[in-house]
């Protein structure tokens, strides 16, 4: 609640000279310039080792590249201190992973409450939670169930709910469907887009599964973006 109000620019992501290398490692990411307009639904194709996870970490403010100019939702990431960056991420950026999106021993409701807790805004959380569950076509009885007791498909949908509980303006989704069977993948992508579709909201969907690309209005490929990428690259992204 105390984080600065974000001035939303026209571009959801604007970056220049973004280079990143892990400690004592080779450069894994080198993007001279790139931008994503606000409201984009971007399908970012990238095999493993293409630097996509590093890019997502930088966009989410988990990692920092001090020399680069990186603005996310109009906010310069390197200008924020680490605590403000954590708060910014909690409030404005939702993240869904391939797996392990939920604390297994907490109930679904507590997982959602925890996500809200870090933004400092837990007001009418239960109402928001049950609304989200309904929108994601999940039963209300799931709220009290432990996350570990859910099926994989349910877990991924609850992961969307968790990512959306704070009404973020940007959603970063990293290989969310690789644990799902093919029919469920399309349904998942549809559901995601339905619930997040808005002119303000930017979705970055990272996958190596090009069959899903049809759902998205824009496409990009890590291998073209990232100059540090080599086919036989010896680094892990």
């Amino acid at each position: 609640m105390n984080a600065p109000a974000v001035e939303l620019g026209e571009e959801a992501v604007a970056l220049e000279r973004l280079r990143y290398s892990y400690e004592r490692g080779a450069c894994v990411l080198d993007i001279p310039q790139w931008s994503i307009p606000k409201g984009s639904h971007l399908f970012l194709r990238g095999p493993s080792g293409s630097g996509k996870t590093t890019l997502l970490n930088l966009l989410a403010g988990m990692l920092v590249a001090p020399e680069a100019r990186l603005e996310v939702l109009g906010q310069s990431m390197s200008a924020l201190g680490s605590r403000r960056r954590d708060r910014f991420r909690a409030q404005h950026i939702g993240v869904v992973f391939q797996q392990f999106n939920l604390i297994p021993y907490l109930s679904v409701l507590d997982n959602l409450r925890l996500a809200a807790h870090f933004t400092g805004n837990t007001r009418d959380l239960e109402r928001r939670a049950s609304e989200l569950l309904a929108e994601l076509r999940l039963g209300q009885d799931l709220l009290q169930r432990k996350a570990a007791k859910l099926s994989v498909g349910q877990q991924q949908r609850v992961a969307i709910a968790r990512a959306l509980i704070n009404r973020p303006n940007m959603l970063l989704v990293d290989e969310p469907t690789s644990a799902l069977d093919p029919e469920a993948r399309d349904a998942f992508a549809e559901l995601l887009l339905q619930n997040f579709a808005s002119s303000d909201n930017t979705l970055i969907f990272v996958s190596h599964d090009t069959t899903l690309a049809a759902h998205f209005s824009q496409r990009a490929d890590m291998r073209e973006l990232n100059r540090a990428w080599r086919e036989e690259g010896s680094y892990a992204g």
Binding site: M62, R89, L114
Partner: peptide, 16 residues
């Protein structure tokens, strides 16, 4: 480790 990474993702700071 993954639980901690998840907590970081949803906005938990190192202090928390």
């Amino acid at each position: 480790r993954r639980e901690i990474a998840l907590l970081r993702t949803i906005g938990a700071g190192p202090l928390q």
